[in-house]
Simulated scan of single mutants.
Amino acid sequence: MTMADKYLMGAATSELDRMLFQGEMFRPEAQRLLDRCGPGPGGRAVDVGCGPLGILDMLSDRVGPGGEVVGLDVQPAMLDLARRLVTERKLDNVRLVEADAAATTEEAGRFDFVHTRLVLMNVPHSDAVLNAMVALGRPGGTVAVQDVDWLTRVCDPPHPAWTKVVDLIAELWRINGMDVHLGRRLPRLLRGAGLTDVQVDAGIRVFQRDHPYHTLVVDRAELCRDALVERRLTSHDELDQLTGALREHLAHPDTVVVHPVLFQAWGRVPGGPAAAHD
């Protein structure tokens, strides 16, 4: 298994549905990002790790019929659904490519806008992915990253099962070479990759029991069950006890869940005129 294959959440139908829901949920944040630094009409944009849709539809609308959008993903199941959605929504200026973000054959220096969302935290070769993204941007173009930091992943009232499950997943990410606190490091990561004029913003969401993401921590633990047990971080019996207790706690009307901070950071590829924005 290559590093690019180690997406611990998998690509089952339930996960594809979750990613589509997540894309819609974070549409306002993506809209604000594009208003600040997105491509203009006729531009070329790439969404790295686009999954089943990412922000392909938003980029398609931004660049218009005279522009081009590339959706890049390493997982065939993600791209199968993306192809269907691109066809259904008549996104004629969108092209889909199956490739590891760090090893794409897309032409270097081609794109006015290079974007990724919730990818760097979930891959062990995040530095290589970011460097490849910078290489794809034209001189003066923009590279933009959206990713989370588990700084605010808490629930209230507190519960020991919540703390244990969050710690288990964070440790699984760590031993697989990933960082659940990557979000706060985005500005310096972008500068370290050679970008200039780096800017950053962040936002937090809060969920109650009527929202599907209220139980995301438990759902993620279940998706990662085999990996957690294989790494000897827990047992099936212990995980059953933890997730059972946590689901009961989350079902209480007083329980509030704070989502990780969503950081947005963007910068300019050195050289050339600044990217044109709407």
Rank of each mutant, 00 (worst) to 15 (best):
A103R: 14
H181V: 04
R268Q: 08
Q146F: 14
F21D: 09
Q22M: 09
L56V: 10
S235T: 05
L190D: 03
A276M: 09
A132C: 09
Q199Y: 04
A12V: 02
D201H: 07
P124R: 15
H259N: 10
V145W: 14
L190Y: 10
H252D: 02
E106N: 01
Q75M: 09
A245F: 01
L136F: 13
D149N: 11
G203S: 09
Q146N: 05
A108H: 05
R62E: 03
A251E: 01
G66V: 01
Q22P: 00
G23C: 05
S126D: 13
Q31G: 14
V134N: 06
G51R: 03
V180D: 08
D73N: 09
E238D: 06
L81P: 00
A170W: 02
R209T: 02
D112G: 08
A144P: 00
G137W: 10
H159T: 06
P41K: 15
R83L: 01
Q31H: 15
T215L: 02
L120G: 08
M25R: 15
V229M: 08
T142A: 07
S235C: 04
D57M: 07
T142L: 07
N93G: 01
G40K: 15
G10D: 01
V114C: 07
D73Q: 09
H249N: 06
G137P: 00
V86T: 13
G244N: 08
P157E: 03
P187A: 11
L79A: 01
R209A: 07
L228G: 07
G54P: 03
W162C: 05
H159Q: 07
W162F: 14
G271C: 04
L190A: 08
D226Q: 12
D226T: 14
P253F: 05
L91T: 08
E230Q: 15
H259P: 00
T13K: 12
V143K: 10
V123H: 11
A45S: 07
F111Y: 15
K6Y: 07
R174K: 13
N122H: 15
D167R: 11
A11E: 09
D219W: 13
T105I: 01
V206G: 04
D278T: 14
M3D: 03
T104A: 10
W173G: 04
L216V: 11
V154M: 05
H214N: 06
M19L: 14
R62W: 06
Q146D: 00
E238S: 02
T13H: 12
R174D: 05
F263L: 10
D237I: 02
G272R: 10
V134A: 11
P253N: 11
E24D: 15
F113S: 00
R231H: 15
A251Y: 00
H159Y: 13
G109P: 00
A193I: 00
R185S: 13
L136V: 06
D5N: 11
L228A: 03
M78G: 02
A30C: 14
V229L: 07
G51K: 04
R174A: 14
M78T: 00
A101N: 08
T142Y: 06
S60G: 12
L228F: 10
P160K: 14
R220H: 09
V218C: 05
L216A: 12
T104R: 08
A193C: 04
L136N: 02
V166S: 14
R220N: 05
P52R: 11
L228I: 05
D127P: 03
T163P: 00
D57L: 06
G66D: 00
G183N: 09
C224L: 15
A45H: 14
V165K: 04
